[in-house]
């Protein structure tokens, strides 16, 4: 009994009951809202069925309940009571229906954005990590470069956008450049510190095993600095995403940032919200994959 009447299930029932109440706004029927709520409930039940961990089930239930509470108040103050501005606060059903009709555009935007993001971000990884490994390992280079990073690192990369657009021939190249610069510094600085902070004991151990310079760099320093490299790469990824959407809002003709900016110019706030939610989902998915990679790479830590 207690299992059945948890917060999530109560929320689900309340939302179903809410749809019985007559609406004041008549821009959408209950269909799309019900699609949303039922999908969430199915997802929730799936998680319950799959997960063996009690803490995780409870958390899933609580999160679902919070989402229901948000949808409930959103639906209540828009469709049912209509006390919020209709243009700025579209009903949840409208968002769901637009999400479905605009999905092809959104997916194309996703593909275009990922192209820029991956190009800039992978370039940053490919330059920052090896460079920082070598510089961090050579004391003299480190002493010269470390103070420089303290000056260049904190410059907010957004300020490069106008210059990059002026400097570089196409929008594509300039956004890749900006994403590259933005992601480069956190990865570079974290890797540098990671190398510097590897325990002396570990370095001495490796030296006592008489390792070659190449082995030292790639089999000792690289894995030794890996926790720092990964935390730098996480920050780099977040910055890359911010810069990507910022650049797209300024100069793109497709992509996720463009979608939001384009429809806000037409005051089509329903689509703006659709874009924001879609971006949220994309970021969540990317972070999820990234975390999986991190857990795998650092599986040797407890």
């Amino acid at each position: 009994m207690k299992k059945l009447f948890n917060l999530a299930n109560i929320g689900f029932l309340l939302l179903l009951l809410l749809e019985i109440i007559p609406s004041r706004r008549n821009d959408t029927g209950p269909f799309f809202l019900l699609v949303l709520v039922v999908s969430i409930q199915v997802l929730y039940l799936l998680i319950l069925a799959v997960s063996g961990d009690d803490d995780k089930r409870t958390a899933a239930g609580d999160i679902t309940a919070i989402i229901y509470a948000l949808i409930f108040s959103w639906e209540l103050f828009t469709t049912k009571l209509d006390i919020l501005d209709q243009m700025l606060f579209p009903a949840p059903g409208i968002i769901v229906s637009l999400f479905i009709t605009d999905l092809p555009v959104l997916l194309k935007g996703f593909a275009d954005s990922m192209e820029l993001l991956l190009a800039g971000y992978l370039l940053a990884l490919a330059f920052a990590i090896p460079l920082a490994l070598v510089i961090g390992w050579r004391k003299r280079l480190y002493n010269a470069v470390n103070p420089l990073t303290k000056v260049l690192g904190p410059i907010p990369p957004i300020v490069y956008i106008p210059y990059a657009i002026g400097l570089l021939p196409t929008f594509m190249i300039s956004s890749i450049f900006i994403i590259f610069v933005g992601a480069f510094w956190p990865i570079f600085i974290n890797t540098l510190n990671g190398v510097f902070n590897i325990e002396k004991r570990i370095i001495d151990s490796a030296k006592a095993l008489n390792v070659s310079e190449k082995t030292m760099l790639f089999e000792i320093i690289l894995p030794g600095a890996l926790p720092a490299i990964i935390s730098g790469s996480t920050i780099g990824l977040v910055l890359a995403f911010i810069l990507l959407t910022a650049a797209e809002m300024i100069g793109a003709t497709s992509g996720l940032g463009w979608y939001v900016k384009y429809f806000s110019d037409f005051a089509d706030y329903s689509r703006v919200i659709v874009g924001i939610i879609f971006i949220g989902m994309v970021v969540t998915a990317i972070t999820y994959v990234f975390n999986k990679i991190e857990v795998y790479l650092l599986r040797w830590r407890n």
Binding site: R201, I202, D204, S205, A206, A208, I220, P223, G224, L226, W300, R301
Partner: peptide, 11 residues
């Protein structure tokens, strides 16, 4: 060389 504190590579 075997150190006082464990000198294995944790990874």
């Amino acid at each position: 060389l075997v150190f006082q504190h464990y000198s294995l590579f944790p990874w």
